[in-house]
């Protein structure tokens, strides 16, 4: 399983970023290889609009199995992600990636 987190930093202790399109980083965890990889999303900061769809396109390219985030994608981005069949968990803000991952494992996160 490959799990993506919207995150304010690049390691397990970083907080989940509540934002979807404007998240600081997208951190990917590959459960098979136990590797953690961070994708910088600062490029989108220059754009006034469309941060959500730009992120949706990124997520399609990276195709994780699971996404863990805060508020969850907005309307437009949700439409874009519909065909991806990726599981989305929300309301993981106010926790670190590690805490969010543990909660996910215990099935304590809210599924969208």
């Amino acid at each position: 399983m490959r799990i993506a987190f919207t995150s304010v930093g690049t390691n397990w202790d970083a907080q989940i970023d509540p934002r979807f399109g404007r998240t600081a980083f997208l951190v990917l965890f590959n459960e098979e290889t136990a590797q953690l990889e961070a994708v910088d999303n600062s490029g989108v900061q220059a754009d006034a609009h469309g941060a959500g769809t730009a992120m949706a396109q990124r997520i399609y390219e990276l195709h994780p199995d699971v996404l863990i985030t805060g508020n969850g994608p907005g309307d437009t981005a949700s439409k874009a992600l519909k065909n991806l069949h990726m599981r989305i968990y929300v309301e993981a803000h106010n926790m670190s990636l590690k805490e969010a991952y543990e909660k996910y494992k215990k099935q304590e996160l809210t599924a969208l």
């Binding site: 754009d47 469309g50 941060a51 959500g52 769809t53 396109q57 874009a80 065909n83 991806l84």
Partner: peptide
């Protein structure tokens, strides 16, 4: 597209 209104989602 500067507005990210046209995006590529997989083969679409």
């Amino acid at each position: 597209c500067k507005f990210h209104a046209v995006i590529r989602l997989g083969e679409f």
